[in-house]
Design a protein around this nucleic acid. Sequence first.
RNA 1: GCGCGGGUAGCUUAGUCGGUUAGAGCACCCGGCUGAUAACCGGGAGGCCGCAGGUUCAAGUCCUGCCUCGCGCACCA
Length: 1095
Amino acid sequence: MAQPKAAGELDAVGLETALLEAWKQENAFQTSVDSRSHGAPFIFLEGPPTANGKPGIHHVVARAYKDLVCRWKTMEGFQVKRKGGWDTHGLPVEIEVQKRMDLMSNEAIEAFGMDNFNKACRESVWTYETAWREMTERMAYWVDLDNPYVTLENNYVESCWWAIKQMFDKGLLYRGHKVLPYCPQTGTSYSSHEVALGYKEVEEPSVYVKFKLIDEDASILAWTTTPWTLPGNVGLAVGPEVTYVRARITEQAENWVGAGGAEVGETIILAKDLMKEVLRHKVEIIEEFQGKTLVGRAYEPLFPDAVPRNGSETAWTVLEADWVTTTDGTGVVHTAVMYGEDDYNLGMAAGLPAYHTVGMDGAFLSGTHPDLDGRYVKECDQTVIDLLSAAGGSNGKGPDSGLLYREKAYLHDYPHCWRTGHPLLYYAMDSWFVRMTAVKERLLEFNDGVEWAPDWVGEGRFGEWLRNVKDWAISRERYWGTPLPVWRSESGGMKCIGSIEELRAEVAKAVAAGIENPPCPEDVDLHRPIVDAFTLVDDGGKPMQRETFVMDCWFDSGCAPFAQWHHPFDGGETFDSSSPVDYICEGVDQTRGWFYTLLAVSTTVFDKPAYKRCLSLGLILDAEGKKMSKSKGNIVDPWDHFNREGADATRWYMVTAGAPWNPLKFDPNGVRETYGKMFLTLWNIYKFHADYAALDGFDPEATTSEVNERSSLDRWILSRLATTAKSYHADFVSWNFHKACRDLEEFVVNDLSNWYVRRSRRRLWDDAESKDKLACQHTLHEVLTTVCRLMAPVSPFMVDVIHRNLTGETVHLAAWPLGTPGELEGATADDWDEVAAAATANLPPHDTRLENSMAIVRELAEVGRRIRIDAGRRQRLPCAQGWIVAGPDLGEFYDILAEELNVEAIEVEKDLDRFQRIELAPNFRALAPKARANVNAVANEIKSSTDPTALLASIEAGTCEIMGVSIEMSDVELRRIERDGFAASTVQIGQGDEAIQISLVLDMNDTPELLSKGLARDITRRIQAKRKTLDLEIEATIDLEIWLKDAPELFADDQQWIVTETRAAAAVFHPPSEAPSGPSESFEVDGTTVWFTVA
RNA sequence: GCGCGGGUAGCUUAGUCGGUUAGAGCACCCGGCUGAUAACCGGGAGGCCGCAGGUUCAAGUCCUGCCUCGCGCACCA
């Protein structure tokens, strides 16, 4: 039923686009999943891309690896459902819209109307959906885009709310402060990811400030790069173990630059290590002591009215903090509670007053200082410096020299708003947190159970992150996102809403309590501002407003395992039976992103891991090794390659270019190379088989050919196929897809095309039916279908065309050649009966001896060419005799060898010494323990022996001793090398103990018969080339005329051979005296001139 | 600054437990082969294996330090 049709010329792009159409018609993806519906499930989870930018080549890479594993597992008989997904919330979407609509501040958005804005966001999300869908389809990433999960949909949001409520009920969700990078111009705090976009190197004034101790006439010196935080100072931190000094100024400084200074006799306290760097005055050290002795000492506030004490006993005293170092500054850290993370944490722990001196607009609050109130902090650096450097300092009660010791320009990277370019302020803000620190042990435990590829991402980078886990600041002061479903009353009453039903009930309750509310229908849209409008009541009957935050959009995607099914509102079974998922795969940049939030949500909500296997992909760089980014404009458009080399070559290139977790330098030339090398070769192999199969009406099912009756060449390629397939599979299992595919490519190009097909060509030319031809066709059929199946997960197009034509069935419904464990009774994605699985494999028999022998044959064929080049004997001139010296019996390959070497006869030379001499080389591994320090000297003795034969004899006799070391056979390696003066060459096959040296010797003597044959071959070759340039059909016949000059005799047999080979219907061989009268082709070979005409 | 991963030929890269002469592809040059393709074969040129030190009989491989690139964290007084 499956008689192959002839294959045409290759048009990769046409082939792929036509096949896409066929797949669509056949519903191929769904069919491939459904056909395994009885298989064990293998759960894949798609990490949702944000569809608010055009997809680039880096997206293709990630999708290629997702697809690869899913297709592979499907072929193994597992049922691999693949639901698509879209990440639709969050700042990237908002910013896209803000840019487009010129709404660059929160005020602008609110003036525009939050409902309008969110509507625009909702629409904006789908701007690039088509582009994504087209890319996804074109690259043949099989995923269900018709029923994706979408994070903005009500069902999805409702599941997120449910999850938040679980956290809330467990006490894992709390409201607190966090110091965040904040842009007063846009009124937005930024996530670390966004902050990273805006670092700029800037030079700013840094200041060394004297904090005057109350109970002593001395000052503690502290340093800051942000003078605007000084009015908020309420503490000084010292390292308890750090050594400090009390230093007295002994002399005025010379060449003082800038503001500040000190009087002779003033006492200054700072870290000993930093004294030289900081102090510009000559000083004497009065005392050295540890930081802890300073703790508790009180000092005078710099700006006495800026911050109220509010009963704090620790305010304006010295505190200890173990993170204080002496790498820069003075070893004393000025602490302004609200404007630094460390400061804030220290302030909370020590009970410092937590008051802002700066408003949300970035200006000093009124009451800070008359000269500062109401001014933008970044413009006040100089004013602060002036106030402090004035005699007595800002309050006039400091030392005569003022409170400023020095100012110094300081160059550093500082975060700036990547939208407005303004410097960001670290600012303590209200925020909601998930208490990740409470589940740290569980996170680590679950992570240990994950199979990471590569393992160091899990143990190293991700493990490190988890060991230092901090509470997750999960709220954002934004508009477009999953609203935080917590309502709060002024008295602190709180309620977390976990479903629409609950929301409606609470609204009803509030209405019943007399609070007006908008209607809350069953399909109420769970977005701002709609949900903001509901006022609920707390248990005491007090009105509660929603906390106006939205969730970090990473929280949304972290909920994907269950929210995609609308869990638990769908009944809960789907998630319960598909958790944790078996496989996820994303770029390594998701380590702290999705990989983390999946685990974080799963751990806090379900106390369970989220995934079992995680493939973490390396970054995609451009050909120069730079990260691909929109701003650099170096993004490669996947369509460039889809439309030129096709998706197959693009995908195969990506996988073979390096390990999946290594950064990939995407080189467009590499795709071209892959196309030419792998796919064109594969196609031509296929074409060779299919064309003759069609011509001969070959039907693999109607005929049979017993493998053990086939030629050794057939059995060899089948054995190579089995070997390659097994290592291919093993590499897949260990995530080494690159190795697997490189080896398979090597097999296809080298073994299959360059040897098997080349050697088999004549077998198929034969018009007559023969057992051998049938054997060859069955062999090609088996090898090609198996190669197609192996390649199908990586590059699904061409192999499907080939597989369909050869077998009548799509490769995507075919079984994995190494077995289908997923179909086994009781199998799971993690566990199956190995023996039963092996029985489902379908591979030809191994024959290691045959593989080894053929390796030698091929080596010898190459050696023959080398010998001829060295001896200056042309390839087509036959040699009478070739001798093989040593090596295993290659008798069954003599015909191949004779043809490859172009020799009349092959003989095995038993007398090794006739053509070979020996050399001895030391075996260091064996020799080193015996000879110890003398190993090199002993080795030299062995290497440089003038009579290796005699040396060998003495070693064999056990009487050899060099420098006191007795040498045995295991201490040396014996090498056989051709003797000088022969047209010969020696090769080594194999390594170590199994290595053998084989020499090939060619007889260089000419006879008239050989010269005639050689000439005939040269003439034939020229005529064949001519036939080709004339573009003749293979069956077409020609009329031939040949003239010769200075030629050896061309015997009748050889004339006839030329006639047969060139399909000459008529041939005239002119006598040596004649020369052509009309136009003709001519060439010269070894002094002979040949003219010929082809008609 | 801390952590992770790299640095091998002009480019892309392989290199196992430390072991003899560091292997391949692309590009380049020369030659060959081809009813066989953009393929293939032989040869050539091209390597301080990032630098320095150490361990060792022996280091691309192990150790230490440094330089450099990428990523992540912190950018912090």
